[in-house]
């Protein structure tokens, strides 16, 4: 290997200046260990470089060194920064420099505050929306319940209508007796099943502790046909195989075995 021409090829300068590529670096480091002349040539160029840099030096403004040492102190002891900051003459910094840490800290703080405000805002929004949602759910439940009630009522009324429209159903109108002319009721009597229904919406409301009771007159004898509860429109009462007339009296709650005749409200004959 021609060491002299290798030394004079410029590869050493390229290496020292940091311009050589990986292959050149590997080759040179291998040869350097092998040939002291190469090692010396490298050192010689490094010295020349240092000397040239010194010739082209540009003085650094006073104050930069103090700043640098302050910064190194801060970076070396971040844990006890609080008391140290007090010792630092803050105003004595004439030269602009990048102070990343405070900027990052300030940015973080701003982000934290913004994030906190957003948290509160969104938490409040969340609460409002949750409350609204709860209200809506309870409204919905109420509506469902109402709907169910109405459906039930509707079905009942439909059944009542069907029952009344049934050709097998016999209708017996009960008119108010003397002194009770404002009252009326209707008995529906199924001629097949012999079930008796009564529509009592035109009777005066029963006083508390009292209840209306329907009687069937069978061969002149009043037979209990059932008490009228608080059914919506038409109450299904007892099964009466045969009767010539129906009457309603006001009795004590729970009904009586025999009618209190002076408390008769309505009366009507069958047929």
């Amino acid at each position: 290997m021609d060491i002299k021409s290798y030394i004079q090829s410029g590869v050493i300068e390229s290496y020292v200046l940091g311009l050589a590529d990986q292959d050149e670096i590997r080759e040179l480091e291998r040869l350097r260990a092998q040939y002291p002349e190469i090692d010396q040539a490298i050192i010689a160029f490094e010295e020349l470089l240092e000397q040239t840099a010194a010739e082209h030096a540009v003085s650094v403004p006073a104050g930069v060194k103090e700043q640098l040492f302050e910064r190194l102190k801060e970076e070396a002891m971040p844990a006890e920064s609080a008391p140290r900051i007090k010792e630092t003459p803050v105003a004595a910094a004439p030269v602009r420099r990048m102070r990343w840490a405070p900027m990052v800290a300030a940015a973080s703080l701003i982000l934290l505050v913004v994030s906190g405000a957003l948290n509160i805002h969104y938490y409040n929004r969340y609460h409002d929306v949750r409350q609204e949602n709860a209200d809506l759910i309870s409204q919905r439940t109420t509506l469902f319940a109402d709907n169910k009630t109405y459906q039930t009522r509707l079905i009942e009324m439909q059944e009542d209508l069907d029952m009344m429209a049934d050709s097998a159903m016999m209708k017996v109108s009960l008119a108010g007796v003397k002194g009770k002319e404002n009252n009326a009721a209707t008995v529906f009597w199924d001629t097949h099943t012999r079930d008796v229904y009564v529509m009592s919406s035109k009777l005066a409301p029963a006083p508390s502790g009292k209840q209306y009771q329907l009687w069937a007159l069978v061969d002149g004898v009043p037979v209990d046909a059932g008490t009228i509860g608080d059914c919506a429109s038409i109450c299904k009462l007892k099964n009466i195989p045969g009767a010539q007339a129906f009457a309603i009296t006001l009795e004590n709650a729970g009904g009586s075995p025999t009618p209190t005749l002076d408390q008769m409200y309505v009366f009507g004959k069958v047929g």
């Binding site: 010194a54 060194k65 700043q67």
Partner: peptide, 24 residues
């Protein structure tokens, strides 16, 4: 510092930036 300052200015001729870099 002044040698390195000169070298930095050779690459990046801006006084303020060069001093920031020198400190770095």
């Amino acid at each position: 510092s002044s040698s390195l300052h000169g070298a930095i200015l050779g690459i990046l001729p801006d006084t303020d930036t060069a001093l920031d870099i020198l400190q770095e």
